[in-house]
């Protein structure tokens, strides 16, 4: 009996080491979104260009919802990817201009290019709260029914596009084609 118990500390050590090993590679900054497989929160807001938009204004095909701000440096890093996607027409991108100022937002789009179908103006960050946003940039994949399918926190560069979004979008389109 005591012989089999002798292995208990070793087993406990191995178990703990495995748990902690996994912990080393978990990103505690990436919180799971509560809105996965839930419809996009209802909104009735203005765009940065001064047009009024609601959920009905959203594209009727899968699209990306990108949370951005003119103050946000990582947004500038991922911007070329969005420009490329919008120029090639791969997928529509809707912007959420989060906790920014309208004039600064317009200026930023003017300077860097506008890849967005439209950008929802969320100066007070109230729509961001409904989305569960905790900081720009964040990018959501939304299906044609307006249901959120995936959220990516931080920069969406070409690598993330290729490895995460491209396959996810292909899968979503295949699912919707059925």
């Amino acid at each position: 009996m005591s012989r089999s118990f002798a292995f208990l500390p070793v087993a406990a050590f191995v178990l703990l080491a495995l748990v902690m090993w996994r912990g080393l590679y978990l990103d505690s900054k990436e919180l799971p979104s509560m809105l996965i497989d839930k419809p996009m929160p209802a909104f009735d807001l203005m765009t940065v260009d001064g047009n009024s938009v609601t959920n009905d204004s959203l594209p009727s095909e899968p699209f990306l919802l990108n949370v951005w701000g003119s103050y946000c440096l990582p947004c500038l890093v991922e911007h070329p990817t969005f420009m490329r996607l919008s120029e090639s027409g791969e997928i529509p991108i809707v912007g959420v201009n989060y906790r920014d100022q309208k004039a600064l937002a317009l200026n930023w789009l003017e300077e860097n290019g506008n890849p967005y179908v439209f950008s929802i103006l969320d100066e007070p960050g109230r729509f961001g709260i409904d989305l569960g946003v905790y900081g720009a940039p964040e990018t959501y994949l939304v299906d044609s029914e307006g249901v959120i399918r995936y959220r990516h926190v931080s920069v969406l560069d070409e690598t993330v596009w290729r490895e995460v979004f491209e396959p996810a979008i292909a899968e979503l389109r295949a699912e919707e084609a059925k």
């Binding site: 960050g125 109230r126 961001g128 709260i129 900081g135």
Partner: peptide, 19 residues
Amino acid sequence: PMCQNTSLSGSTGGVAEDL
């Protein structure tokens, strides 16, 4: 949610302010 180990009351973060 942004600054992780701070409560809403202790944070200067934008989200904390909104919340």
